[in-house]
């Protein structure tokens, strides 16, 4: 009997306590939600400029682990905050999908990738292929910024999958990532040829680690020599040479300053691979230029020559 009395007493206290707590909770919960939304509101407004009410969706599950925030633009659609890893650094973007399953907004919030390459995902050449797409269409990656754009597309797809699941839209998997067609090569040029004679690259920096020497070389390409752009700049390459074995270890872009969509075509494995293991003492070594990006390809060759001859 005593235990029953005690149990009842405790239960009564707990019930009263719970009631009082529920009261406080009712008062504070909307304020808390409002505060949380406020920090994201600016970004959400970019995606849905006409929407006035936003809600945070707390419970969401993303298998890919890329979606870090889900918001509802009441009456307009859903917004997803996604974080992916690009070439080197995280990229955070907001994707807006309207209630009729179309992508209506894409805003990059954080981006720290290679300038001239990674930031192409902010430009129309990428965004035009994102906005307007449905939640099941394919989205092409950018050639020359493959790693970054593929990561972003993966993130977009993660958000789209969540949207489809929540709305019950069937995704037959016909969408996804559209990979670019393979690289077309043109004629070959020698590293030590006349083309690389006339204009030469300039070694800007050099670090030595035993036998391995890493050169940062600036080399004028299309933009400077023919494009006539206002603030044309040379391309910058990283050339790594093994001076003991006299071979090229690797060549890659530091800065691509030629025409977007053209010069960056050479930023592909099939192009850079040509340089690997070339014997620098052999003056007949040559590489194939990428068709449609000849001058940029030659600027790479010039950079390599400048590094070799340094």
């Amino acid at each position: 009997m005593k235990i029953l009395k005690m149990g009842l007493f405790l239960a009564l206290v707990a019930a009263l306590a719970g009631g009082a707590l529920a009261f406080v909770n009712n008062i504070t919960a909307p304020i808390i939600a409002e505060n949380a939304i406020a920090s994201e509101k600016a970004n959400l407004q970019k995606i849905f400029p006409d929407a006035s009410e936003f809600l945070i969706i707390e419970d969401f599950e993303d298998e890919a682990g890329l979606v870090i925030g889900v918001y509802e633009a009441v009456g307009y659609g859903m917004a997803y905050k996604v974080r992916v890893t690009g070439y080197a650094n995280p990229i955070v973007f907001m994707l807006g999908i309207s209630d009729d399953a179309k992508i209506v907004g894409f805003a990059v919030l954080e981006l720290n990738d290679t300038p001239g390459i990674g930031d192409r995902i902010e430009k129309p050449e990428f965004t035009d292929n994102v906005i307007g797409k449905t939640t099941t269409d394919g989205i092409p990656v950018l050639s020359g910024a493959t790693v970054t754009s593929a990561a972003v597309v993966k993130g977009i797809n993660a958000a789209r999958t969540m949207f489809n699941e929540s709305k019950g839209i069937d995704d037959d998997g016909s969408g996804g990532i559209i990979t670019p067609p393979p690289l077309q090569f043109g004629p070959s040029i020698g590293i030590f040829s006349t083309q690389t004679d006339r204009v030469s690259g300039e070694v800007m920096d050099k670090t030595t680690d035993g036998d391995i020497v890493t050169y940062i070389v600036s080399s004028r390409g299309y933009a400077v020599l023919e494009g006539g752009y206002d603030d044309a700049k040379p391309n910058v390459f990283e050339v790594v040479i093994n001076r003991a074995d006299n071979v090229i270890v690797s060549v890659s872009f530091i800065e691509m300053n030629d025409t977007q969509g053209f010069g960056d075509k050479i930023d592909a494995d099939e192009f850079w691979e040509q340089f690997v293991d070339l014997d620098i003492t052999d003056d007949t070594i040559e590489i194939d230029v990428v068709s449609g990006a000849t001058m940029t390809s030659v600027s790479a060759a010039r950079a390599v020559r400048a590094a070799i001859e340094d």
């Binding site: 306590a17 719970g18 009082a20 406080v24 504070t28 919960a29 808390i32």
Partner: peptide, 14 residues
């Protein structure tokens, strides 16, 4: 516990 939770909610909001 009830008081602490109330304080927590109030601090979260204000």
């Amino acid at each position: 516990a009830t008081l602490v939770k109330m304080v927590e909610l109030l601090m979260h909001a204000f």
